[in-house]
Design a protein around this nucleic acid. Structure first.
Lengths: 193, 193
DNA sequence: AGCCCATGTAATTGAATGATTACTTATCTG
DNA sequence: CAGATAAGTAATCATTCAATTACATGGGCT
C-alpha cells in the first residue's frame, strides 16, 4: 500500500485510540494494532508519539474549520448558528473523532500540544466572529455549548440515557433534534476498554 | 505526622499533579515528591493509583457541591445564578484544583472513573435544578459555561492574554469581573512542566 | 525498661512501552 | 535481469513506573 494511504489509516486509528485513552494513556502498539500495522511502523512514520498526536490534533482542527466553512456557502431557512451546531454534532458522531481535541485542550502544560491547542481554539473563535459574523458573546456561548457536548460524550453520558431521567433530560437539552442520531451512533461503538 | 493529616497533603499534591499531567500521565513518584513523602507511601496509603485518583475526584466533586450549597444560604442583591458562577471561579483558582475533574470527565471509558464522573456530573445538574431552582435550559447553559471555563484554563489560554487580542476578548467574556483575579492566580503558578 | 503499633523509607522487581536496529519482501526502472 | 528504492516486520533495548518486600524509627503504654 502507498504510504499516503497508510498514513491516513494510522491517523484514523490514532484518533480513535487517543479519544478513548487520552494522550498519555494510549500506546503506539494499540494504535498500530487498530491500524493493522506493526508498532515500529507507526513510530517510524511519525517520529515520536507526540508528533503523531500533534498531527491528529492538527487534522481534527482543520476538519472542524472546514466543516464550519462549508456551512457558510449553504442557502437555507435555518439560521447559520443552528447549522453550525448541527455540523459540529455531525463531526462528533464520526467515530468519536473530535474527542481527541478535548484531550489536547486539557494538556496546556505541554509546550507543543498546548501551543497547538491554544492557537486552534482561537482559530475557531476568530472564524465565528470574522467569517460567521457572531458577536463576542454569541461566539462564547456557541463554544461553551460545544465544550459541554464534548464533555458529555467524553464521559459517555449516553450510557445512562436509558436508566437515568436527568441524563435523558440533559442530553435532550444539548442535542435537541440530533439526539436520536447521536444515541444510535453511541450504541454502535460500545466501550472498547 | 498523623496519617489523616498526611492523607490530606497527598490528596492536595495528587490534585495538583493530576491537573497538569492527566490521570495516565501523572506518576505516583511525582505525587510523592510534591507531597514530600516516598513513593511507596503514596501507593500503600491508597492501594493503587486509580483508587487515589478516584478519591481526588470524589473530594473535588464534594467540594464543588459544598461551595454551591453554601451560596444557597447567602442573602445578597446579586442573583443566585451569578453567585454560583463566581463561586465556581473561586474554586478553580485554588491552585487549579478542579482541573482534575476535567481529566476525570474525559475518561468515560474507564469503568470506575467513568461511573464516578457521570454520577458526579449529574449530581451537579440535579443540584442546579432541584435546589437552586434552575430550569433545565438554564442549568445546561450554566454547566456549558463551566466547561468552557475549564477548557480555557486547562489549555492555559491565560498565557496568551498579553499577546493575543482575541484571547483577551474571549477570556473577558467568560470571566467578566473575575478576570483580573484569575490572571493574577494564573501568573502565580507558571507552567510546571 | 520493654513491647508494639503507627509512620515512614530504601531497595527491588516485573511488566509495559517508546524507540532502534537489522532484516525481508515487493515493485519499479534502466 | 540487476539493482535500487519503498513498504513493512521481528526482535530487542533502555527506561519508566506501579507495586512489593523488608527494614528503620519513634512515641505511648504497661
Amino acid at each position: 500500500m502507498a504510504s499516503d494511504a497508510r498514513r491516513i489509516l494510522i491517523l484514523d486509528a490514532a484518533t480513535e485510540v487517543f479519544s478513548h485513552r487520552g494522550y498519555a494513556g494510549a500506546t503506539t502498539d494499540q494504535i498500530a494494532t487498530a491500524a493493522e500495522v506493526s508498532q515500529p511502523y507507526v513510530v517510524r512514520m511519525f517520529g515520536t508519539k507526540e508528533k503523531l498526536f500533534v498531527e491528529v490534533l492538527r487534522r481534527d482542527l482543520d476538519r472542524m474549520l472546514a466543516a464550519f466553512r462549508a456551512q457558510l456557502g449553504v442557502e437555507s431557512d435555518t439560521p447559520l448558528r443552528e447549522r453550525l451546531g448541527l455540523a459540529y454534532i455531525d463531526l462528533l458522531q464520526d467515530r468519536g473523532l473530535l474527542l481527541s481535541l478535548m484531550h489536547g485542550f486539557v494538556l496546556g502544560s505541554d509546550p507543543v500540544i498546548g501551543d497547538l491547542a491554544r492557537s486552534g481554539f482561537l482559530d475557531v473563535y476568530r472564524f465565528l466572529k470574522n467569517e460567521a459574523g457572531f458577536s463576542a458573546d454569541d461566539a462564547t456561548t456557541f463554544m461553551a455549548q460545544g465544550m459541554l457536548l464534548n464533555t458529555l460524550l467524553g464521559m459517555r453520558m449516553t450510557d445512562k440515557y436509558d436508566t437515568d431521567e436527568d441524563a435523558r433530560e440533559l442530553l435532550g437539552c444539548v442535542l435537541h433534534a440530533k439526539l436520536d442520531f447521536m444515541l444510535q451512533v453511541a450504541n454502535q461503538s460500545p466501550a472498547v476498554v
